[in-house]
Amino acid sequence: MVDPILEVGGLVKHYPLTQGILFKKQVGAVKAVDGVDFTLHKGETLGIVGESGCGKSTVAKMLVNLERPTQGLIKYKGEDITKLSGKALKSVRRNIQMVFQDPYTSLNPRMTVGDIIGEPYDIHPEVAPKGDRRKKVQDLLDVVGLNPEYINRYPHQFSGGQRQRIGIARGLALRPEVIVADEPVSALDVSVQAQVINLLDRLQSEFELSYLFIAHDLSIVRHISDRVGVMYLGRIVEIGRDAEIYDHPTHPYTQALLSAVPVPDPEAREHRERIILTGDVPSPTNIPSGCRFRTRCWKAQERCALEVPALAVPAEFRHTSGPAAHDSACHFAEEKQVVPAEETE
């Protein structure tokens, strides 16, 4: 196996909760991310799914250095970037770029499209010498499927889908190797989502990009991802190749999540088993002991409150080579097909 382009180990982000104005004392912490490990290879797409508050966006922010991790490593091509500063950090950041969720708030309304896409060149002038920039920006507009003549327009003159293309062009400006896309299509209309997904797909093969693709729409994640990680309350509870996760999930949370997704086929209504979870996600300030999913899990037993399940191939599948043999953090992992069987491949 080739070395991964990105390696994340034991990543933790805790936001302290303080009390008192003059003498601040820490009374607890919001454990947004609480021990996340994964790797990303060149040209690969890793999808991260999970409900709001599970920490998926915080992971994204740490990868592009918008947040400093409390603990843990983020290795880019073998080098830990969490300790870097100054010049070294700047040059690494060039290679990991982000596409944001909301194309309405992530573009400065007072800047022209050309200035927005070209701004990264002010910070990294080595990528494009001054005289070259306009041409480069126009090329980028063309690459993302916008008319290069729009370079002097302002964001409000574009639709949501077009703005997201502008955001993507900005992400591409520095020729990064990794793109972190945090819910890049969820703010878009259904008929426009497919266009943007196709664009991301095309750009990946054109520029050999690696994607960390964060979304809550499970069918879109499956379409675009090679591997998928499922997050719950700050941790990855199950991770594997897309078919392993979707067709052979072994973690009860993944099973519940998949079964809750409405299937766009009225015929499936009658003969599908739905796992309806009770209650809400616990607060990240007060994470349950042992397995963090146990308060909503129908399989929970005493052991689950005592022992934290490790993210590894469960013992019962360790000696098989079947699709159930992938990492799952559950003491009582068992394979269960929850999505109506469809022909694979």
């Binding site: 008929s191 989502q193 069918s219 379409h223």
Partner: peptide, 23 residues
């Protein structure tokens, strides 16, 4: 068009059908 643009399993790795243009 709306129904066709839902990602389906057998289309993995292929281009999704997309309705062109904007509302």
């Amino acid at each position: 068009g709306l129904l066709d643009s839902i990602p389906r399993l057998d289309q993995k790795g292929q281009e999704l059908y997309a309705i062109k243009g904007l509302p």
